[in-house]
């Protein structure tokens, strides 16, 4: 950048320009290797899960990340050549987000309820594809037929009951096996 401004008017010979370019590129390649090594270290450190604690691993990963971000900002974005105010503008978001994070710390305590936090009924997450298709289909059918069966038993003539009974049977059978929140909705009804 320095000689983009000096090149106004002044005649620089191509050899000097080439020299400057070469110096810059060799510096950039060094930064590139540093970035690559830190990335590999970040990904590879999980193999030391048995030896190191989670806190140590996370701290090291965050440290490497900050170093990488610093390299990109300082060398690639040429902050090294800028005056103080450009640097301040550059780190301002980090400072603001950092302060914000500190002020949000009390909210990160799980046990302490905050006023707007509404507890959801506990969800049970199926682990497999098959499990998913069961629970996705079952509650809707169950709910539908359950209501129908209720109608049939209360108001309909006895002839309609055998029709409703077989379809409500699988729904009733599947209900105790799943801890689906929809079941509790039915119970509440």
């Amino acid at each position: 950048m320095a000689h983009a401004s000096t090149s106004h008017g002044a005649v620089l010979d191509q050899a000097a320009l080439d020299q400057a370019e070469k110096a810059k590129v060799s510096k950039y390649i060094k930064i590139f290797w540093a970035l690559c090594i830190f990335t590999v270290a970040e990904v590879g450190i999980v193999f030391f899960e048995k030896v190191l604690s989670k806190l140590v691993i996370d701290s090291v990963v965050i440290l490497f990340t900050m170093l990488k971000a610093g390299f990109v900002g300082y060398y690639f974005m040429h902050l090294e050549y800028e005056k103080r105010w450009t640097k301040i503008v550059a780190v301002l978001p980090l400072l603001i987000v950092g302060f914000y994070a500190i002020f949000l710390m009390p909210d990160t305590v799980r046990e302490r309820p905050i006023s707007l936090y509404v507890a959801e009924p506990a969800r049970v997450y199926p682990v497999h594809e098959e499990a998913k298709s069961e629970t996705a289909a079952a509650p809707i059918e169950g709910q539908f037929f359950q209501v129908k069966a209720g109608e049939a038993s209360s108001g309909a003539p006895a002839g309609a009951a055998p029709v409703a009974a077989p379809v409500s049977a699988p729904a009733a059978g599947s209900a105790p096996t799943s801890d689906n929140p929809l079941d509790s909705v039915e119970a509440w009804r």
């Binding site: 191509q14 320009l17 370019e21 950039y28 590139f32 990109v72 060398y75 690639f76």
Partner: peptide
């Protein structure tokens, strides 16, 4: 990112 800074360095070297 590296190729971007190399591009800029090349541009400055005309």
């Amino acid at each position: 990112s590296v190729s971007m800074v190399i591009a800029q360095a090349a541009g400055e070297a005309r």
